[in-house]
């Protein structure tokens, strides 16, 4: 196999990795906020359910969760799971990362001084306005470093999609390495992950800089 072929084959995997990455973020970043707010619900039952969800998502391996999401419908209900592979992967990643993001958001929300809330209430802001106009913008700034960490972890975690036979870049590296008895594919994959994460750091750095106008 020529180096060009190797690169071209793996490029397809990189695109797939990127697909899981982007869809996971698009799903989990907003869902995490919903979860974080439900965790602060005034209904004890809701809080307990959300707490259990977060514990399970964080307390079990993502690989296992992916297997459950994909095979679960068949084993539990006997449903056909044809065509379910990619949705299951995205579902598994989104639900897992939403749990982590939720805890980051919750920490961020709780770190905002209570005086901010009180000032807004006295000025007549509604609950929604207080959250959207006063609390959330400050939360975003505070959680940026933790979010960056999590996003970088996600870039590397995408390789777990191989569990459900998703031919992402790391699966391809393993396969080509096996057939070519060469370490080069792993090297290529390594460079890919590094470059992707460098881009993430750079992008998040820009956002942090934009938010740096106040302290």
């Amino acid at each position: 196999m020529t180096f060009q072929t190797m690169l071209a084959t793996m490029a397809v995997g990189m695109l797939r990795t990127f697909g899981v990455f982007v869809l996971t973020l698009l799903g989990s970043l907003p869902l995490g906020m919903v979860v974080a707010l439900l965790k602060k619900s005034r209904f004890a039952l809701v809080r307990a359910l959300v707490g259990a969800y977060i514990s399970i998502m964080r307390g079990t391996p993502l690989m296992l969760q992916l297997l459950v999401w994909y095979f679960g419908p068949y084993y539990l209900f006997g449903w056909s799971i044809s065509g379910w592979r990619f949705p299951a992967i995205v579902l598994g990643f989104v639900l897992n990362y939403a749990a982590y993001f939720a805890e980051i958001y919750r920490g961020g929300i709780e770190s905002i001084p209570v005086g901010q809330n009180e000032a807004a209430v006295v000025l007549g802001y509604s609950r929604t306005q207080t959250f959207m106009r006063i609390v959330l913008p400050q939360v975003v700034k505070r959680i940026m470093p933790s979010v960056t960490n999590e996003v970088i972890t996600l870039v590397k975690d995408t390789s777990l999609a191989f569990t459900l036979a998703y031919q992402e870049v790391f699966s391809l590296a393993k396969q080509i390495s096996a057939s070519q008895t060469s370490f080069m594919p792993f090297l290529i994959a390594g460079v890919f992950y590094f470059v992707a994460n460098y881009a993430v750091e750079f992008g998040m750095g820009l956002i942090e800089k934009v938010l740096d106008y106040y302290r």
Partner: peptide, 30 residues
């Protein structure tokens, strides 16, 4: 609530808003 205003010991200004916006945001949006 609109009858009364409160000035806090710790000011509690909104750090992400300019001074002007601290004064205009609630009149505009509330």
């Amino acid at each position: 609530r609109s009858y009364c205003g409160l000035v806090f010991q710790q000011f509690n200004l909104f750090p992400h808003y300019s001074i002007l916006r601290n004064l205009t945001d609630a009149p505009i949006h509330v």
